[in-house]
């Protein structure tokens, strides 16, 4: 490699900084996961509802999010909100933007979970005397969330990978830290290599755990 020797040891002194970055990344991801899950569920229910308006709103919401880059959505909120007189922390903007962005794929997978629940289950619950709402919360939703579990986790992995874009609004999450440290230490190759590996390990870990949980809770229809 052209006389270049890899030196990872130089980076040890920045480990505190990296830890802070990891903590911030976790904050962003956990917050936006919660938002995207519930928003996705709401959108999926709207998409399946009888109301034309609800279906239309949900469709437009999902299509706009899926057909525009997350970076632009992030800038839109980050630079746009102050124009509306709303001044919020970059962290909050990141959580909201990422949560909204991820609600679209979550809507899709929860929706296909809902569609996989056969009419027989609706009728069986009705025949037992459940109201429509009870049928939905006690039977339909638990079944469809189990069906959607695996794709949901892969959406969440994607969310974590996408969270690195939040560095674009000056957030010192793991990617932001990497950029700063690479300027200070002049060891960009090592830093980005480590980052690549760390993200890979993380993704593998998540999909491993997800598979194990899925095996436990999965149902065959």
């Amino acid at each position: 490699m052209g006389g270049y020797t890899l030196n990872f040891r130089v980076l040890l002194q920045y480990s505190g900084l990296f830890l802070q970055g990891v903590v911030l990344t976790i904050k962003i991801c956990v917050g936006s996961m919660i938002i995207s899950f519930f928003l996705g569920m709401l959108l999926a229910v709207m998409r399946q509802s009888k109301s034309r308006v609800a279906r239309f709103v949900s469709t437009v919401w999902v299509e706009v999010l899926r057909n525009t880059p997350f970076l632009i959505q992030l800038f839109f909120f980050y630079y746009g909100l102050p124009q509306l007189g709303i001044y919020v922390d970059a962290l909050v903007v990141a959580i909201i933007a990422l949560g909204i962005n991820s609600s679209a794929p979550n809507c899709e997978v929860i929706r296909s979970g809902l569609m996989a629940v056969k009419t027989g289950y609706y009728e069986a619950s009705a025949a037992l005397g459940f109201s429509k709402f009870q049928t939905f919360t006690r039977v339909v939703l638990p079944i469809s969330l189990r069906l959607a579990f695996k794709p949901l986790t892969s959406n969440f992995v994607n969310l974590v990978l996408t969270s690195s874009v939040c560095y674009g609004i000056t957030l010192m999450e793991i990617m932001g830290v990497a950029k700063t440290v690479s300027a200070r230490s002049n060891r960009p190759f090592e830093i980005y290599l480590i980052l690549l590996v760390v993200y890979c390990i993380f993704t593998y870990l998540v999909s491993f755990v997800a598979k194990a949980i899925d095996r436990k809770i999965q149902i065959k229809l």
Binding site: G120, A124, A127, G129, I143, R146, I219, L221
Partner: peptide
Amino acid sequence: ETCGMVFQQTVLFPH
């Protein structure tokens, strides 16, 4: 509640 019903397709709740 008065009339319980059982169907042709077996629909035990899978979860």
